[in-house]
Design a protein around this nucleic acid. Structure first.
Lengths: 124, 124
DNA sequence: TAACTGTACTACCCGTCATAGTACAGTTAT
DNA sequence: ATAACTGTACTATGACGGGTAGTACAGTTA
């Protein structure tokens, strides 16, 4: 379910956070679902338990999961809601990227093509 | 002309690289233009000369500027061309971002609004 | 000659990422 | 109750990158 890219410049714990969030957005992980334990994840991913715990702590801090000592880590009820709100906030940064594209001479039609392509994926 | 945000998590030398590239794309810096010297920039920006030099080395490596010992650093003839090509390569990453937005429930209309807004800025 | 230019090099500080090992408290099944 | 799990906390260590500090060298220009 999870996989780590050791060659990536992105920290391992951030990769984990990102993958959990992605699975939540995709509906693969749903509220109440239990994540693998810190130690089992550390074993299967060949990563130090502390690194896994760091990812769990971050997810718990954001409200994506709910860590319960002795029981495990569970997807929070508001996980999807929180993530969607977070992405909405990234729209500002998105505009900055668009402005850079425009200055780089990338035409509006090229952008429109990308949007059309992505938002047509998986449609009937 | 240049300014550094010490509170940013982005390395100073990367901020400098980004600003030079931005000015090139905006047409404020043009081929042949001479950048302030390493030491004067270090002084005015209150940054170590080594940090400035690191930015210059990176810009020289990418072909954006041409460093000439004893004379100075000058905007390369192909600077604009190189930057536009670089941004074109980022279209793939742009699509990934779009997919994340779509999964986060951001509608196509919201994206279209952003595109329209950005590509309408500064138009007659 | 003097004052500039870019460049190279070493040394050091600091923060982050990751590992390693230990320990403690809560939960669950036997 | 015991054993085996669960999350959590803590210290110590090593590696790496960003940044500073200082020095030095070679090319350019007035």
């Amino acid at each position: 379910m999870f996989q780590i890219d050791n060659m990536s410049h992105i920290p391992v714990y951030e990769q984990l956070v990102g993958q959990v969030e992605m699975y939540v957005l995709k509906g693969i992980l749903n509220p109440g679902d239990r994540l693998p334990s810190v130690r089992s994840l550390a074993g299967s991913l060949a990563v130090n338990p502390n690194t896994i715990q760091k990812a769990m702590a971050e997810l718990d801090r954001k409200g994506i999961i709910c860590s319960v000592p002795g029981k495990g880590c569970f997807i929070s009820d508001r996980a999807g809601e929180i993530l969607k709100e977070e992405h909405r906030g990234e729209l500002k940064e998105f505009k900055e990227q668009l402005r850079r594209f425009r200055m780089a001479g990338i035409g509006r039609d090229e952008i429109e093509n990308c949007v059309d392509e992505v938002y047509s994926e998986g449609k009937k």
